[in-house]
Each structure stands twice: as C-alpha cells, then as structure tokens.
Design a protein around this nucleic acid. Structure first.
Length: 616
DNA sequence: CTTAGGG
DNA sequence: CCCTAAG
C-alpha cells in the first residue's frame, strides 16, 4: 500500500483542487490532461472574477467579470463560455456553516455533461468549495483519500450540506503584507486549523476555529480531487512556522465503521492580473524543493507553473528575473512560500488475517493510522539532507529565504513519541531488509541522512522516507517503510517495525498495478519478437520473449507496442521517459508498416503461409 | 483466454 | 496500465 499524498493542479505556483472538467472526446490521456487544465483554468478565471467582484462589492452580487476577458463579460456570457454546460453561480450570504468572518459564498450548479447521467450525482460531483482568505497565506491545496481502504470514511464535519458552494470570506490575517487589500486572494480550502497541536487537529469536527471550516463533503472532495492515477492520499503539509494551516484531522468516529479522516488545508490563489502586490513574495515552490520524503520531485510542469513570483514581478512592473531584486524590502516583509508536495505517512503497519473482511481491514488501517497520529507528529526540516534542529533561527539565518536554496530543503514527518505500543507493532519481525529496490532507494537518499546531527530529539522517529514496493511474480508487495533512526542509522530498524500488508490486490482487486516502464532491452526484445511474429500474436510474443517477466502480460506488450509506434511517430522532443534508441524506433515503424500491410493482405486474401511465417 | 481498441 | 467488447 502506498500512502502518500499528491496535490492537484498547480497554477501560478499554487495547488488547486480539481475543478470539474468536462470530458469531451479525447484521443488519449494526454489530450485529456491538457483539456482538463484548460477547464480548470477556466474555473480559475471564474473564481478570480468572483474574488474581484467581491473586492468591489462586499455585499453579494450576482454578476462578475472574468479576468483576462477583453470585454467585461456578463455572468451569462461567462457561463456560456467554452463550456457547453450551464453553470450557475449564486453568491449567498449567511450560510449557517460559514464562520462569521466569512460573509459570502457562492453556490455553483453545474449541469455539464458528466459521465454520470444522474442530475443529482452530477450536482454532487461538480460542487466545490473555495475559500477566499484566511489568516494564513502559505497553505496549500487539498488532499484526499482515494484508496478503497479508507475512501469510505466520512468526515462528520464535511458531510453537512450537499449544497455545492464556493465559500468566500475576508482576509485579515498577517499575510496581508503581500496582499494589502483584503479580498485579493481566493483560497481553496478543505479545512484549516490554527492550532498546530496535532491532537487538536485530530478532531476537526470539534474545532473551534472560527476562521473557516470545510464544508465539502468528503465524498465530494474525493471525487473532485480524484484522479484515477492517484492512490491513497494521506498526508500533512506543514510549512512549519509559516503556516498554521496544514494539519491532519484523524479520528475514529464513535460508530463502528464510520471513521472520519480528513486532511485539510487552505490554498491561496493569487491572480496575475491583480495589481495589489506591493511586498516581497518569494515563491519557494520552484526548483522542486518541496520533495518531502526526498522522492517527490516536482515535475517540470509543476515547476514551470509555480510562477507566482514571476507574476508578482509582472504586476509590479518590475522587470526582474530574480528574486533578489525583490529583496530591498525588509526581511520581515518577505514571505517565503512553502509548497510541500507531499508527506508520507510515517508508518502504516497492519497485520490482519486473510479471512478478515475488507471492512475490517479498513478499520484496522484506520486504527493504525490513529495510533500513529495519536502518538504525535512533528515536522522535521532537513537542509541539504541534514536535520536542522535550531527552531529559533530565522529562515534567513537558516538560509531558507532564497528560492535558489530551497532545493536543498526537505521536510519530514517525525513521530514525537517512542515506539507506539500498539497492537499493530511487531517488534519481533521488523521487515527492514528490503530485498528489492532498497539499495536504489538508499542510494537516492541524501548523503548523511543521519537525520540527527546530534541535535534532534532522541526519542523522535524520523518520518517514513518512502514506501518500498517490491514485486514478486505478478504481484506487487508493499514493503515496510524505510526508517532512519535519529539516533543511529544502523539501529534504524528499531524505529517503527513494520510488516508488509497482505497483498492489497487480494483484498482490493481494483488496485492499480505499479507502473514499470519498459527498459530499452525490453523494448529491444519486444521489437524483435514483433518483427518475427507480427502484431496480432501477443500471447506468442509473451511466451517467446517475456515468459520470464511475470509482470508483463501480453496486454502489456500489446500496449507497449502501441506506445512504441506512437513514440516513433512523434518528434523526439515530444518523447518522454527513458529515450528509446532511434534505431529501435525505426524498426518499430518498419515492423508496424510491414505487419499492417500483411494484415491488409490477409483481409483481402485467405491467409498465406508466407505471411504467417513472417517472411518479409 | 486472447485480441483489439478506447480510456 | 485499465477496462471491456468481441471472438
């Protein structure tokens, strides 16, 4: 089981939850992604317009403009733009669930063409919640639970109303320095909590925080933020002292099976068109610094879109290209934005008989998580792989204030307590020997992962750095997380003993297989086989060249050939992943052309011995 | 179970 | 890599 969290879309340096996109007719995934981004950009514009409008009229209004439009569009025009659907935005006041500081929110009804034909379902799935403001400016997007193991958990707090809404409130927090006026940011929250105390955060439904609260049904949120590529999402983002936002809420409900789990954060969205930026704002979300667990590097796209500081320069009319040029301001005016892509749950150790039900597995997992969270967590900061233990030093002193240094920065989740003595632990059988890929992982860990540097709390257990996934035969086994003891690297095994889960796919057939890109040698073998056998005999290809590769099914091979043909046809610049030698791609094209021709002949004529023998 | 093709 | 219709 892979437990990690991914944020969704990052625009202008911020994460967005998934806005509903309207699937049209797409040829493939990539086009779908592009289109989704467009739709989300559209939604973004709408939200920006809403915030703009609210800036102008603090009393609710029913019309707003979309930034970027050449004209001042009416609401109706906006709603008809691009989307064939009829969206309905209604700005309301006085929602009972809205805290006093949040005096406006917007309901959105979407009748777009979702896959689900049901109106009710559609409405539910297209609802979303946005929060404009909050006293913090560093928080991030949303997280979600997508894994079947816990996806059914409901958050009592969030199940309140099914009314889709955009929740907008005023901003009057300390981060106004970068947004001098109140209403210049939209935040897409799931939840926020001003209390850093994790124990408090474990009870989001009892939070007394008045700034804002989540009003997004957990199931809605899940669907909104769901991508089919996501696994279990479970994480914490804590921009340390800079944000009081991110926290984990986790609590088994009183009932038997309903266990609430929620992770909530708020997200500020800045708008490029805004002319209110006057202070220094350092976007630390560049360069992929935020690789919690060391392994979550930002993608190029994410980095390139993390351009809030660039936007800042733009609106300021400052032709600067570097952050330094924005630093004449007082240091205390500067905000370092942290965008932590993901944390990985420190431990998840579950032992459960095979005869147990899926439901009991869920509960067990939930209890295990609760045990971990309940023991207390704190965030560790690692600079250049070394634990930074001086909490009193400023970011500037620590060298965290410059974006160009931030790729040296990592965060870890660390357990405050010693070994949680729960029944989920099994110190007798710690599986810290990782037969597969462990070497690779260790090699990828920063040098001197001696997390302590002699300063860290000896009782703390550094966070899980990664979940090791191993493969045996055609099944994937998830190996226990790798822990590095803060005391002694060699004794790290004592940290949090773990045991592999029983094959998740056994209890969850829907579990997606681990992606394992084809190596060049595999491609070579595939090309060779197809050259000889043709493109319609994938079982033979499998038996002939991949019989030993249990994880490659003939469907996989067929799919790989499909992508190979596609790869060979596109320009090298468009190709991704490990480069396939052009020579191989040429062979792909030749073989594909040849066998296509053969197939055409076979359609016209009865099968010939020659074709079947692959003579060409 | 295999193949083919869309997602 | 998933899903599924079709044979």
């Amino acid at each position: 089981m892979v437990l990690h969290r991914k944020l969704d879309y990052r625009l202008n340096g911020y994460h967005f939850p998934s806005f509903p996109s309207v699937p049209i007719s797409a040829k493939g995934k990539r086009s779908v992604r592009r289109r989704s981004v467009e739709n989300r950009m559209h939604a973004f514009n709408i939200l920006a317009a809403v915030a703009d409008k609210l800036l102008e009229t603090e009393n609710s209004s029913a019309t707003f403009d979309v930034p970027g439009s050449s004209k001042s569009d009416s609401k109706q025009e906006i709603l008809n733009e691009k989307k064939p659907c009829k969206d309905e935005f209604v700005i309301q006041n006085g929602h009972p669930n809205v805290s006093p500081q949040c005096d406006g929110f917007i309901s959105r009804k979407d009748s777009s063409s979702w896959k689900e034909p049901s109106n009710a379902l559609r409405l539910s799935e297209t609802s979303f919640v946005c929060l404009c403001s909050g006293s913090d400016g560093n928080s991030l997007g949303c997280c979600r639970l997508d894994d079947p193991v816990i996806s059914d958990f409901k958050t009592p707090l969030m199940r309140s109303e099914s009314n889709p809404e955009i929740h907008i409130s005023k901003e009057n927090g300390p981060y106004n320095c970068s947004f001098p006026h109140s209403w210049d940011a939209l935040e897409l929250p799931v939840h926020r909590d001003d209390d850093e105390n994790s124990s408090r955060c474990t009870h989001p439904c009892t939070s007394t925080n008045k700034s804002s609260k989540p009003y997004l049904g957990a199931n809605k949120l899940k669907k909104l933020l769901t991508s089919r590529y996501w696994k279990v999402d479970l994480g914490v983002a804590k921009p340390a002292d800079l944000s009081k936002t991110a926290d984990v809420g986790l609590k088994p409900a009183l009932g038997k099976q309903k266990i609430s789990y929620t992770f909530q954060r708020t997200q500020r969205i800045s708008f490029k068109k805004r002319k209110l930026f006057k202070r220094c704002l350092v976007s630390a979300s560049r360069n992929g610094f935020n690789r919690a667990g060391f392994l979550n590097l930002l993608t190029k796209k994410e980095i390139s879109e993390g351009s809030c500081s660039a936007a800042l320069h733009e609106v300021n009319g400052i032709p600067s290209t570097t952050t330094e040029q924005l630093l004449p301001y007082k240091p205390e005016d500067c905000q370092v934005k942290f965008s932590i892509k993901s944390f990985i749950v420190p431990e998840l150790f579950v032992e459960i008989p095979e005869t147990a039900t899926v439901g009991s597995l869920k509960r067990t997992v939930m209890e295990a998580i609760t045990a971990i969270i309940g023991s207390g967590l704190h965030v560790g900061v690692l600079l250049q792989g070394k634990h930074f233990g001086d909490d009193d030093r400023t970011l500037i002193q620590a060298g965290i204030s410059h974006a160009n240094e931030l790729d040296e920065l990592s965060f870890t989740l660390e357990s405050n307590s010693t070994l949680p003595s729960t029944r989920y632990s099994n110190s007798k059988n710690p599986h810290f020997l990782l037969p597969c890929e462990s070497t690779e992982l260790l090699a990828r860990l920063p040098n001197g992962t001696s997390v302590d540097q002699g300063k860290s709390n000896s009782s703390s257990y550094p966070a899980l750095l990664s979940t090791i996934i191993c493969h045996e035969s055609d099944r994937d086994f998830v190996h226990p997380p790798l822990y590095m003891s803060s005391q002694d690297k060699t004794s790290s095994c004592e940290a949090l003993p773990a045991v592999p889960l029983h094959n998740p796919r056994r209890s969850d057939p829907k579990h997606r297989r681990i992606r394992r890109p084809f190596t060049v040698s595999e491609v070579e073998a595939l090309v060779q086989a197809v050259e000889n056998l043709g493109t319609g005999r994938w079982r033979d290809v499998k038996l002939r060249s991949f019989d030993d590769a249990k994880h490659r099914t003939y469907v996989d091979l067929k799919d790989k050939w499909k992508t190979l043909v596609h790869t060979a046809r596109i320009s090298p610049q468009q190709r991704r992943g490990e480069p396939v030698p052009q020579e191989l791609l040429n062979r792909v094209l030749n073989a594909h052309a040849h066998w296509s021709q053969q197939q055409a002949k076979l359609q016209a004529k009865p099968p010939s011995t020659e074709a079947c023998l692959g003579v060409w």
